[in-house]
Simulated assay, not measured.
Amino acid sequence: MHCSKQTRLESICLEGLSLTPDERVRLLLALYNSRKTMKYVHCWRAFEKMVSLAGDADYHGESRFYADKRIKICDWFRAIGCLEFLTTLSVNYAYIATPTGDLLVSLAKKLRTNWHWLQLLCLEEEILQKTQNGHDIETIVIPDAAWRTTHFWAPKLKVQYAIIGIPQYDVHKKFFTKQTRIHTFALSTSINLRFRQPWYLDCTIKTLCAWYSNSLVYLCLQLWHNRQNLDNQLRHLFIYLPSLRFFEFVGEIRTLKTLCAICCQIRSGRCNVHRVNMQLQDVIHDSSDKEKWIKCVRCMMLCFKHDFDRMGVKFDINFYCC
């Protein structure tokens, strides 16, 4: 393996390779000679589909995965743990989740202040499994106490979430706890033409505001074809998230009043947001003229343009048909 001959590698990307667990562990162990320089390891979707990590020897929970494809936590930790100066780790949530959170805590104890970023890809099929009756059964999630301990040992650690294809709040809340120090939260509901609603996205937003007001810096909400009125939550979002600096939004805003309130908060300095990118869908619950709505939004933004330019604020709005 060529990387085993390298001694000063700084970054490796295994994303989407669909490696078997044993292949991935061997690859990481081959990086041992670069353990003093390796800082960035990106592993989203690196394991083959339907492969899970085994728990401790005493953990005998039911598994939907084939037993001969499971690897022990100690093998996984030995592979990652040898990279003692690692600063950034990108993994699927399922790769690092254990019933007690011991794998996460062990990494924190090993990496300590060197560990700055944990980037988690969250997929519904990795946290929920279907019974024969079609009911969801929750699999392994990281407990709140483990997150608290992790941040104690790795005080500089910031967590970035990418939750893909999951519109429901009931599933979102399984991936994080109050003690998770979330810096970036990117949520995409994906395009779901079955319209199984309500999604209770207002609860997701309320949770972010209540738990992460001092840590959340980047928020991306891609709410494709959302049918829920979120104007009230969006109108107060920037005030309730004083650390927020970047906001991306795809979805529906129903009133000009909501957009105006957001702009006024930025202009008055009541929040710290300086970059906004919106793609607004048609207001499907209003029979008013779509062209008139777009024209009103653009005229309103012109009123704020001079102040935003002076403040160095970049605020872009585009439109798409629902």
Rank of each mutant, 00 (worst) to 15 (best):
Q119Y: 11
E124V: 04
E126F: 00
K130E: 13
Q132R: 11
Q132M: 07
G134Y: 08
G134N: 11
P143S: 01
P143Y: 01
W147H: 06
W153Y: 15
P155N: 02
P155G: 03
L157A: 02
L157W: 04
K158I: 01
V159F: 05
Y161L: 13
I163P: 05
P167N: 04
D170I: 08
K173C: 12
F176P: 00
T177Y: 00
T180A: 15
R181A: 08
I182K: 02
L187Q: 02
L187M: 07
T189A: 03
I191M: 05
P198W: 10
P198Q: 10
L201A: 05
C203H: 14
C203Y: 14
C203S: 14
T204A: 12
I205A: 05
T207R: 13
L208Y: 08
C209E: 15
Y212W: 07
S213Y: 13
N214K: 14
N214Y: 09
S215T: 15
L216C: 08
V217M: 09
L219M: 07
L221E: 07
Q222G: 03
Q222C: 09
L223Y: 08
L223A: 06
R227L: 15
Q233Y: 06
Q233V: 03
L237Q: 11
I239G: 02
L244Q: 04
F247C: 06
E248D: 08
E252I: 15
I253D: 10
I253C: 09
